[in-house]
Simulated scan of single mutants.
Amino acid sequence: MDTEGLRSFVRAAELGQLQHAADELGVTQQAVSKRIAALERRLEVRLFTRTARGVELTLDGQAFLPHARSIVAGVDRAVAAVRPGSRALRIDVLGLRSAQAVVLHDYWRSRPGTDLDVVTLRVDDPRTAVAAVEAGEIDASFRTVTDPAALPAGMRMIRAFDSPLELLVGPRHPLAAARRLTPRQLRRHRIWVPGIAARSEWAEFYDQLATGFDLRIDAAGPHFGDEVLLDTLADSADVATLVGARDRYVWPADHDLRRIPVVDPTFAYPLSLILPGTNPHPELRGFISYLEGLPKLSGTVWLPSWASPHGGTDR
């Protein structure tokens, strides 16, 4: 059923004149008349009778009006639900315990009136997230396309922030007592990062990290979840993993896990934000300004090639 015909009928019924309805809807009186006539043919009833003062509802029109109002209101709500500025800002993060989610939560706390919808697409290929932004399914995604030339026309990617990495180990690990570690001290130790997905940005990150510092990155086995990973670390004397300094992990007290910063250089994972090139959600401007105000990492920092103008190490 024609929504515009229903809208014209509702406004004519409420205003009592076709011309007033036409003026409000921004069309001609003839257009309103044609819409209502088409609606009457579809329903096979008369909805209005003409009077000297305008139009009045017939009995059928009176019965139809509340239903037509409900349909028009439902359509308006549906449109508002997907129109930027009239709905929540939808941002994709890799996980609700990730550094991206933590930063997004901090932003919301700084602006508690923000209508925000945190999304986890659960996809490994960043191109899938790009397609979701391009289609308007989400407003932005914390993903990185390591070759910016591969971004579709009209899309853009900005640097969000850099997340420093820490070594996470159990109490029996040889490095457990260290207050901080250098990359040289990590050599020959097994760093277990299970389930690194092919074609993902983090697969390329860990490849460059292992090559650049002669590290033993072990991606063997599927990732059964953070709980299994943490249990394994707690029981092991030789397994460690790398986690973001802002990533939230919770484990039982008797696990006694240790988070140890890596320095000289600091390993940093660069996080980007994929955005639409046109018609962005109005709230994105405030969020981007918030990201720009985040403190930068100090000291010597290692970044993968796609994020470092110096090919790996920045100061």
Score class of each variant (00 low, 15 high):
Pro252Ser: 13
Val250Cys: 04
Arg216Trp: 09
Asp207Val: 13
Leu229Tyr: 09
Gln62Lys: 12
Pro252Gln: 12
Val118Asp: 05
Phe64Arg: 04
Ser98Gly: 05
Val123Leu: 11
Gly195Arg: 07
Val130Met: 10
Ala198Ile: 09
Ala219Val: 06
Leu25Lys: 05
Asp226Tyr: 09
Ser98Asn: 03
Ala198Pro: 03
Ser163Arg: 13
Val250Thr: 11
Gln185Ile: 06
Arg90Pro: 09
Leu291Cys: 03
Leu15Asp: 05
Leu43Trp: 01
Thr300Lys: 06
Pro183Asn: 08
Ala99Gly: 15
Leu94Thr: 11
Val169Asp: 02
Gly136Asp: 14
Thr313Met: 04
Ser289Asn: 07
Glu201Gly: 01
Glu137Phe: 14
Leu229Pro: 08
Asp231Leu: 15
Ala63Phe: 05
Val263Met: 08
Val123Ala: 07
Asp238Thr: 11
Arg143Lys: 12
Ile91Asn: 04
Phe48Ala: 00
Leu165Arg: 15
Val193Thr: 10
Gln62Glu: 14
Ala31Gln: 12
Glu166Arg: 14
Pro126Gly: 10
Ile288Lys: 02
Ser272Ala: 14
Gly95Phe: 01
Glu166Gln: 15
Arg143Gly: 01
Val27Phe: 05
Ala197Tyr: 05
Ala198Phe: 11
Arg127Asn: 12
Thr182Trp: 02
His255Val: 10
Gly170Thr: 12
Val243Arg: 05
Gly286Ile: 09
Thr241Gln: 05
Trp302Glu: 04
Ala234Gln: 06
Glu24Ile: 02
Val103Ala: 02
Ala268Ser: 12
Leu271Glu: 09
Phe161Ser: 07
Asp231Lys: 15
Val82Tyr: 04
Gln30Met: 13
Ala132His: 14
His223Phe: 15
Leu303Val: 11
Ala81Asp: 13
Val193Tyr: 02
Leu167Gly: 05
Ala210Val: 03
Thr3Tyr: 11
Asp124Thr: 07
Glu283Thr: 14
Arg172Asp: 13
Pro276Ala: 12
Thr300Ala: 02
Pro270Trp: 09
Arg246Glu: 05
Thr114Asn: 00
Val228Tyr: 14
Asp238Phe: 08
Thr128Ile: 14
Ala160Cys: 11
Ser8Leu: 01
Arg35Tyr: 00
Arg53Val: 02
Gly299Trp: 01
His255Gly: 10
Ser70Leu: 06
Leu15Val: 08
Glu201Tyr: 06
Ala13Gly: 02
Gly5Tyr: 00
Tyr290Thr: 07
Arg258Leu: 08
Glu44Gln: 05
Asp247His: 03
Asp23Ser: 14
Ser298Cys: 02
Phe205Met: 07
Arg41Leu: 00
Val119His: 10
Arg109Ile: 00
Gln17Phe: 01
Ala140Arg: 05
Ser236Trp: 08
His281Trp: 13
Arg7Asp: 01
Val32Thr: 04
Trp202Glu: 12
Ala88Arg: 13
Gly154His: 11
